[in-house]
Design a protein around this nucleic acid. Structure first.
Lengths: 229, 229
DNA sequence: AGCTATCAATAAGC
DNA sequence: GCTTATTGATAGCT
């Protein structure tokens, strides 16, 4: 039969079939990242994209960053996003209303400490991997090293339970520090059980590269700002 | 003559002509936001995009958010991004290396305070505008109210100068608290001099809507999660 | 800002 | 995952 040609203008509403929805999300997200990468190269811009699939999906949230952004700022934002309960209305715990309204200095200090610890670990992570990154663009190699440390660090960083509001509508919501919760859309401990290749996939660095490299090689341009990747 | 038809496959490298680069950035950014909005509707996903044009451009950074994200988390992230010097390698001041390595409790507390003030003001902003938002989808109306407060708040929030690293290569870099610095890519005080419509443009809420509404009306679907906008 | 010829993204089917 | 007809995005022009 014809392999294409049956394509019709899709209705702009939520795709009911779960498998189709996941496929569409994956395809279109790749397209979105590719577009963003092109825009960055053409216009010398900085772009960051955070994409979280619907909670009924099995895939994890992925983060995309391009331009001048450093690796650790990407990972930092990614990590920070991971610390949320699946259906929280605020994307980062420091956006939480309780924290915004808090008059308790200790609570604020605790939040700041959590952030400091997170950043310190990310900084150490950077120092540890910098030499490998600079000499080779081999993603799998340094991603493995980075992620090993990343996942290790994650267990060491105390999450700030009093700062994360309990979501009103999620009955099965457990504590943030529950490391064995596989139902979480994108908990790091769950991710640790996957192969490192899969985790790298979730970070979508390879998707970014595929998108860029799919362009004709002779047309491809690497600016200094992109070389750190 | 023919109006189209001269299009050729563009080289994937930085566009040298400044005007063309700005045009391309604007067009492709709109396309990117439109794609993101479609992906959100089709796949029930949450997407956030932060796009900063090249520093030689006159246009401001814009932020895009869709899905479950609340308005204030969008504005919060937008505001936070604005507080950076133009060519800083870290996107948010709390990602700064100095802060990450700091052993000074006062410095950390100061950072936390800045963040708290920022969030408190954004919370108050939300309370003030909530009634207007709920009853009407008229963007210009509540955006004007919100932005008036937003710009007011901005002057009240003390920036954290010791926490922002001095960029190595920017000689003309001034202090962050210099409210009259028009060379800043996207300083809020500079934005305040524009009409409120233009500022709203920078926030790109209307672009988002245009993108969605350009679809055939009968095919358009509004989920509950989108109604808050 | 608007137009249209090209070219890229992708929905449906293997 | 791979393929291809179709739809959508957009470069160059005005």
């Amino acid at each position: 039969m014809v392999k294409g040609g049956t394509k019709r203008k899709p209705e702009m509403k939520k795709i009911t079939n779960k498998a189709s929805r996941a496929t569409t999300f994956s395809k279109r997200r790749d397209g979105l990242y590719s577009k963003a990468a092109q825009l960055c190269v053409l216009s010398d811009a900085q772009i960051a994209i955070l994409a979280t699939p619907s909670s009924s999906s099995n895939s994890n949230a992925s983060f995309f960053s391009f331009g001048h952004s450093s690796v650790e700022s990407v990972v930092s934002a990614y990590l920070a996003g991971q610390r949320l309960p699946p259906v929280s209305s605020s994307r980062f715990w420091w956006d939480d209303d309780k924290l915004a309204n808090s008059k308790n200095p200790e609570e604020l200090m605790e939040a700041m400490e959590s952030m400091k610890v997170l950043m310190s670990h990310l900084k150490g992570l950077e120092d540890q991997t910098l030499s490998t990154v600079d000499q080779s663009p081999d993603l799998d190699e340094w991603s493995e090293m980075e992620l090993t440390q990343l996942l290790q660090d994650c267990d060491d960083v105390p999450p700030p339970p009093p700062l994360v509001s309990n979501t009103d509508k999620e009955e099965e919501d457990q504590t943030v520090s529950d490391n064995n919760n596989n139902n979480s859309v994108s908990s790091l401990p769950a991710a640790a059980e996957k192969s490192l290749e899969e985790v790298t996939m979730d970070l979508d660095f390879d998707t970014i590269f595929e998108g860029l490299l799919s362009y004709d090689d002779e047309d491809l341009f690497w600016s200094d700002d992109l070389l750190f990747m």
